[in-house]
Amino acid sequence: MGDGTGVAYFDGVKKLAINWFKYSAPTTFYGLAGKMIPWFAVSAAILLAIGLYIGFAVAPADYQQGEFYRIIFIHVPASILSMFLYLILAGYAALGLIFNTRLSAMMASAIAPTGALFAFISLWTGALWGKPMWGAWWVWDARLTSELILLFLYLGFIALHASIDDPRRADRASALLAIVGSVNVPIIYFSVQWWNTLHQGSTIKFSGTSMHVAMQQAMFITLAACWLYAIAVVLARVRSIILERERNTTWIAELPEVKG
């Protein structure tokens, strides 16, 4: 769909009914994303401050792990997000491949760096926690290993996208890779789990204690903060991608931030 005709088409449809696909065009989504970013960013910052305050000042020390457990307020949200973001990325990739929507592919490539960042943070904070608790920076635990492989999948997606010059081919090729990867994720996860139990037995378990209420609150608040942060960052990145991809169109040239 050409860019000028796209706007006219969507304006026409809007008069008839609520158009659910209005914001699937980069032209309209660019403005919407710009309006949403401050809300997500500010609420992420506020929730992160509250969550970390509760986590570090209010929540009591764990009776087994002492103060060390407090890393979970970063570690757990980062791990959860790294996994969910890959699924969302693959979902957008599939949408882009099936319906040939430009914005879906842009969203997929905007999510990838954030997902990789969270996977890295999860591994990093896990190592910081592992040293005092297990006495080792790294253990070939099933959970750690699958997180590492997840990071590899993110890096493969980013590398493939980066090495293809034609954006359309880059989108479609990396989308296919993301889908193949997401089919493989459960296979990898269970094989790694099995590999681990066969080789050394399960050596590490999370202390099965029921969590203190303040700990739970802090963790859920930081999780929400990480979600909001991820959304804000992805929207900001997708705006840059739109600007870069559509730089030759008239609607970009007429944007106040481009004109000024």
Partner: peptide
């Protein structure tokens, strides 16, 4: 880089 992680199983 793309294929090796998929071959782990």
């Amino acid at each position: 880089l793309l294929v090796l992680p998929l071959c782990i199983p």
